[in-house]
């Protein structure tokens, strides 16, 4: 089985947030519930200050701290599904310990006050225990893997678009949106990226393009000191985040 990984080239990323929008459309997430986001940082001070940004999906860590803390095994890493970290919405008790334990802030409860007005939960009220019923929602639903419209009282996160990726032919080294035979299996954020800054492939396949990019362009993992070992790698200048400094 593949070990799915993502490579993001920050020298190409324009910070346009198309990935964030595509993710929200694909996964029926609420505004602010950004399974995928682009984070902007300011680093340094005048005259050498600069702005930097980096896209942030779930890192699908090799040793995910969220999995260790979950008291009900609702959050789990499935090595038979590309090493993706999933949430079983039927087991999640909504204790939010995983949100505390994730160093990358990629988890969302969403059963909370709206981050953006108007509150779409009121405009499209949910039925069957769902948080909301968005118009034109995705037909893909899998509560055991946290795919579909989020139910009330549980945590959600990026699934690397498992509902698409899982349909890919066995053994493909990369899922490239430029390949007509594979384009339907590519995660939404990768497929939509206008400058083609994102790559998706098998980290266990020595011939995959993602492995070549990581090797040749010195791919790094963010916050590697946490020991979580993400399956998402960054290329280019600016692959790091500045220390927190509260605004004055």
């Amino acid at each position: 089985m593949a070990k799915w990984g993502m490579v993001i080239d920050l020298d190409k990323c324009t910070g346009c947030q198309a990935c964030t929008t595509a993710c929200g459309m694909e996964n029926d997430t609420l505004p602010g519930e950004n399974w995928q986001d682009v984070l902007f940082y300011t680093e340094g001070e005048y005259p050498s200050g600069r702005m930097k940004w980096l896209p942030r999906p779930c890192m699908q860590c090799e040793d995910p701290s969220c999995v260790h803390v979950c008291p009900t095994r609702a959050t789990y890493k499935d090595h038979d599904a590309g090493g993706i970290v999933f949430i079983d919405w039927d087991k999640c008790i909504g204790c939010k310990y995983c949100m505390i334990a994730c160093p990358y802030g990629v988890r969302f409860f969403a059963d909370e006050a709206p981050l953006v007005e108007p509150d779409l939960k009121e405009i499209f009220p949910g039925s069957g225990g769902r948080l909301w019923d968005p118009p034109g929602q995705s037909p893909d639903q899998n509560r055991k893997r946290g795919i579909g419209v989020q139910p009330k009282g549980v945590v959600s996160k990026c699934t690397f678009c498992y509902h698409r990726v899982s349909q890919a032919p066995e053994g493909v080294p990369d899922l490239d949106e430029d390949d007509p035979d594979l384009v339907e299996y590519v995660p939404a954020c990768v497929r939509t990226c206008p400058p083609k800054a994102r790559y998706f492939g098998d980290l266990d396949n020595a011939d995959s393009n993602v492995n070549k990019l990581i090797a040749n362009k010195k791919g790094v993992r963010l916050k590697d000191h946490t020991g979580n070992r993400p399956q998402v790698y960054y290329l280019g200048a600016g692959a790091g985040i500045p220390a927190f400094k509260p605004k004055s």
């Binding site: 260790h68 979950c70 008291p71 009900t72 095994r73 609702a74 008790i93 909504g94 204790c95 310990y97």
Partner: peptide
């Protein structure tokens, strides 16, 4: 406070996540 309190009653004992401090606290 919990999202699904009653689910906890079966999900905790049936899944036995012994790696979680929260499980042991319970």
């Amino acid at each position: 406070e919990l999202g699904h309190t009653f689910r906890m009653l079966w999900a905790l004992p049936l899944n036995l996540q012994i790696e979680s401090a929260m499980f042991w606290m319970g």
